[in-house]
Each structure stands twice: as C-alpha cells, then as structure tokens.
Deep mutational scan, measured.
Amino acid sequence: GIPATNLSRVAGLEKQLAIELKVKQGAENMIQTYSNGSTKDRKLLLTAQQMLQDSKTKIDIIRMQLRRALQ
C-alpha cells in the first residue's frame, strides 16, 4: 500500500491541482475575451497568455509529484 504520509501529500497535491486547473480555465477564458478586443486589450491578452503558460507548467509539475507520491 501507500504510506499515510504520502496519502496526505496526495490530498494536498490534488487540492493544488484543482486550483491550478481553475486558474488555467480562467486564463483561457481571458484569452478568448481579449483576443478579439482592441489594442488596449493587448497587454491583458499577453498577461493572460503568460498566466496560462505558468499554469500549464505548474499542472505538469503537480502531476509529476502526484505520480511519484503514488508509486
């Protein structure tokens, strides 16, 4: 079985993952909103794209940590 310490770690990672998935969803929504907007929305679009990139990276890292914890 999986050690108890790993189980609480997994629960924490799953919570983090859920949050990051919401951030990713929000960033994707912002990108959709701003991509057909005016030029003043360009900065917001770039910010949203950066957020999305960061979020995807975090999600990958969390998933990797989850896999390790579940081994």
Rank of each mutant, 00 (worst) to 15 (best):
K22A: 10
Q65G: 03
T47V: 15
L45C: 05
D54S: 08
D60T: 12
I61N: 10
I59G: 00
R42D: 15
Q71D: 11
N6M: 05
Q65P: 00
Q32F: 11
V10C: 12
E14S: 07
L70H: 04
L66C: 02
I31W: 02
Q32C: 13
E20F: 08
A4G: 10
K58E: 02
V10L: 07
Q53R: 11
L46C: 10
L70M: 08
D54E: 11
V10R: 03
R67K: 08
K58C: 06
K56G: 03
G26R: 14
L70V: 06
E20S: 04
L52M: 04
K15L: 11
M51N: 03
S8G: 10
S55M: 02
T5E: 13
L13N: 00
A48M: 05
D54R: 11
T5G: 12
S8M: 08
T5R: 07
Q32S: 09
Q16V: 04
Q16S: 05
D54H: 06
A4V: 13
T57D: 12
K58F: 02
S35M: 14
G1M: 08
Q53A: 12
T47A: 14
Q16A: 11
V10G: 05
S55E: 01
D60E: 13
I61T: 09
M64G: 10
T39C: 14
T47F: 14
K40E: 11
N36Y: 07
S35G: 07
L44M: 12
L46M: 09
A4E: 13
R68N: 12
N29V: 10
A48W: 11
R68F: 10
I2W: 13
R68V: 15
L70R: 08
V10A: 04
K22R: 10
L17S: 00
R42V: 13
G12I: 15
P3I: 06
K15S: 07
L52W: 08
M30E: 04
M64K: 13
T39M: 08
K56N: 09
Q65W: 06
N6Q: 07
N29C: 15
S38V: 11
K22M: 09
Q32R: 07
D41W: 09
R42Y: 14
I59Q: 00
K56S: 08
D41Q: 04
I31H: 01
Q25V: 06
S8H: 09
Q32N: 12
M51L: 11
I19R: 14
S8W: 02
N36S: 13
D60G: 10
Q16P: 00
Q71I: 13
M51R: 05
P3R: 05
R42Q: 14
S35Y: 13
L45V: 04
D60M: 12
V23L: 09
K56F: 04
L17T: 00
V10F: 03
Q16Y: 03
K40W: 05
Q50G: 03
V23P: 00
S8V: 13
D54M: 06
D41H: 04
L66P: 00
T57G: 05
I2C: 15
K22Y: 04
Q50P: 00
S55P: 00
K24D: 00
Q16D: 04
A69K: 02
R9N: 08
I31G: 01
D60R: 14
Q32H: 10
L21C: 13
G12H: 14
Q49G: 02
L13P: 00
I2M: 10
K40R: 07
K24Q: 06
